[in-house]
Design a protein around this nucleic acid. Structure first.
Length: 426
RNA sequence: GGAGAGGUGGCCGAGUGGUCGAAGGCGCUCCCCUGCUAAGGGAGUAUACGGUAACCCCGUAUCGAGGGUUCGAAUCCCUUCCUCUCCGCCA
């Protein structure tokens, strides 16, 4: 949610930010509504002031037994009532329009974010790790998994349809191992608090992180109105909703391993094979709630946490700074981590770390009180994957495949796999 | 799922139609007093929005949320969310 006061003071910057995202300017429309809204508020408050004053006099008159005076005053206030009801209705509509408009507009990118219209304009900021070399043609992960007999899309399709998978045996364990490995690093080495959050949440929570109202079609919803989380960003960020924190409580860092559910509306025909794009997948997510002045450092730190996982798994990757046209709705700046997939002969997104400024805390009504001071401020939020577990498994399969179709288990993971060194067909 | 009880300020807790933004207590802040410690005295202590250049001041709203009745609602009515107790069911 945007800061109306900031838009009032900086309409050109606001429109400039929207334009960089490929959107039309909106400040004139917003400011017109705002002005109208404030005029209505002033008018209504004036009426209320009068009504309150007269009502108090009625109370006094009745208290002193002066019924005639009371009656007279009651007649006087009666006419006020109609005007007030009409004004309230009109004013309410203006306020609703204004809020709906504000809620529908994406966050303003930071100056340092590269301009661009889409994926092609993202900037490769650095490349890390070494791609493995093969003496044979590396296979894609779905062939590897299916040949091992541990990855089964057909069986999943029978019970759930497309975009679901069944993992079994050592591959199922690998999923659990990866998640535990990631979570252990984030919690014991980087200070994230491990959380097991609800994965069914209500409207308010999803509005808070701004998947609602604009992106409802991307989400699954239960018949009684819960939303299945598309990412643990939703519950983890909402950990601080409607709270006033002490400055000393910041930063707050949460990490969780949860299933995520996405309808993938509009991505028909995309990544139809394999584990890359599922209706259900698991992910380890990081969320930080920080003092505004710490936000940019925290973005680097969080990205580093995600990178550390890739490094320890010995996977090559590149870091992209997303351009204005490819960033998510809430982001002011985003780094994507793309892991090297030899089977696909390409880099694929495995993590996305974003700084959202106060965009989400305004929606959630999260504030913090400055130490020693009285004034309240909105903290800033960040979220990042650390990492997408399914896609990490894809990377392990493709990068550690052997000519015979077996998979070497990365050193760092072996203790989580009961000492197993290699996954092979049984 | 059935039957009850309840949601008031940072916390506890009064308050069943008028002068209540809300008694009292605790906590916290500042000041005074007190030769340590303890005690005592005084003042202050919500948020949002609008009027404003203004965190001074004025106004409006907020007693879980939304709606209604009324000249006037923390107090009455309806809806809804949440919490708790008992029963049932259940991992």
């Amino acid at each position: 949610m945007h800061d109306l006061k900031w838009i009032r003071a900086n309409p050109a910057d606001f429109d400039g930010g929207l334009k960089r995202r490929g959107m039309q300017p909106h400040s004139a429309e917003i400011l017109a509504l705002d002005e109208e809204n404030r005029a209505h508020i002033a008018k209504l408050q004036e009426m209320q002031t009068r009504r309150n004053a007269v009502s108090k006099q009625i109370g006094k008159a009745k208290g002193s037994g002066d019924e005639a005076k009371a009656k007279e005053l009651m007649d006087e206030v009666a006419s006020l009532k109609e005007d007030y009801a009409a004004g309230e209705k009109q004013g309410g509509k203006i306020a609703d329009d204004l809020n709906a408009l504000l809620a529908s507009l994406p966050n303003i990118p930071l100056d340092e974010v590269p301009d661009g219209g889409g994926e092609a304009d993202n900037v490769v900021t650095r490349t890390e790790g070494e791609k493995p070399s093969f003496s044979f043609t590396p296979k894609e992960h779905f062939d590897l998994g299916e040949d091992l007999g541990m990855l089964d899309f057909e069986t999943a399709a029978k019970m759930s349809g497309a975009r679901f998978a069944v993992l079994s045996g050592p591959l199922a364990r690998l999923e659990r191992a990866l998640a535990a490995f990631m979570l252990d690093i984030h919690t014991t080495e980087y200070g994230y608090t491990e959380v097991v959050p609800p994965i069914l949440v209500r409207d308010e929570a999803v509005f808070g992180t701004a998947q609602l109202p604009k992106f409802a079609e991307d989400l699954f919803r239960t018949e009684n109105g819960y939303w299945l989380i598309p990412t643990a960003e939703v519950p983890l960020t909402n950990m601080v909703r409607e709270q006033i924190l002490a400055e000393s409580e910041l930063p707050k860092r949460f990490a969780a391993h949860t299933p995520c559910f996405r309808s993938e509306a509009g991505s028909a025909g995309k990544d139809t094979r394999g584990l890359i794009r599922m209706h259900q997948f698991s992910k380890v997510e990081m969320v930080s709630v920080v003092h505004p002045r710490e936000a940019m450092d925290e973005l680097e730190r969080m990205t580093g946490c995600a990178e550390e996982i890739l490094k320890r798994l010995g996977l090559a990757y590149q870091v992209l700074t997303l351009c204005t046209g490819d960033m998510g709705f809430t982001a002011r700046k985003t780094y994507d981590l793309e892991v090297w997939l030899p089977g696909q002969d390409s880099y694929r997104e495995i993590s996305s770390c974003s700084v959202c400024g106060d965009f989400q805390t305004r929606r959630m009504k999260t504030r913090f009180r400055e130490a020693g001071g009285k004034t309240l401020h909105f903290p800033h939020t960040l979220n990042g994957s650390g990492l997408a577990v399914g896609r990490t498994m894809v990377a392990v399969l493709e990068n550690y495949q052997q000519e015979d179709g077996s998979i070497m288990i990365p050193e760092a993971l072996r203790s989580y796999m009961g000492g197993l060194e290699k996954i092979e067909k049984s």
